[in-house]
Amino acid sequence: MDIFLQQLINGLVLGSVYALVALGYTMVYGILGLINFAHGEVVMVGAMVVLSMISLLSSFPLPLGSELILLISVVSAIIVCSTLAFFMEKVAYRPLRNAPRLAPLITAIGMSILLQNIAMMIWGRQYKTFPDLFSITSYDLAGANITNVQIFIICLSILIMIALLLLINLTRIGRAMRATAENPSIASLMGVNVNTIISLTFVIGAALAAVAGVLVSANYSVAHYSMGFILGLKAFTAAVLGGIGNMAGAMIGGILLGLIESIGAGYISDITGGFMGSHYQDVFAFLVLIVVLVFRPTGIMGERIADRS
């Protein structure tokens, strides 16, 4: 088996999930200058809702097809997460809009802990396994394995990202979002209701997070109330790597971080002569964060552009 190609595939899968989550961080940061540390918990809620919905629908007296069950579950997760993010912004962040920047940051961390604890009360402390809705088939790709779930994850992520880019760059609402990100008060002078745009940003970010939650729990076959924390931090790292506030950057940063992490994990044992194993995988993400913050805090795409106004 070709280890490098295998890690490349794993990294791509992981990276597309990071990219989806990183988009939520970067969109909110772009408009509010706020790092929404509770975003990782939204991913977790998405995963949990999907698991609950699948087990609920599977025990339904009427036999529904697997595809239909999955579709309904994912849509429910998107609705729950979007609603959650909508109220989170309204209750926790909006009152602090004009407060010093540290205040909403601390609130975000508080929100993250709160959501984790609520999730623990609802879904319990134990790991929940993802039900076998579909049989997993493995394909051979030049000596490496790729499963149908992995192919699905990569394709769906790419489709969603393309759709998002089209929305942001070609529609009236997307234009208003970009304008608001650049200057909220001038955008309001164009007739844009800035609060609506901010709510919409949170809702879109949460919908992406919900999908990411589904994908990541399908990939690892487990979900846990605390899964959002590390995942959120890594996606945040991906957003910083790509250049926080830049959407294309979040996508590139996410994929890149996934690749670095899984290739790093694949070879760390060889490099350190067996001293460190692949469970040191998490080290790479934060190593990347430190390196980026020290040497290029603006990230890959975060170049300052001409801004004479």
Partner: peptide, 20 residues
């Protein structure tokens, strides 16, 4: 100080003006 959206194109700026 004009307040144009520096990262949007000229035509996008004009379209923002017609937002409503």
């Amino acid at each position: 100080g004009r307040g144009v959206f520096g990262r949007l194109t000229v035509s996008e700026n004009l379209m923002m003006g017609a937002f409503l």
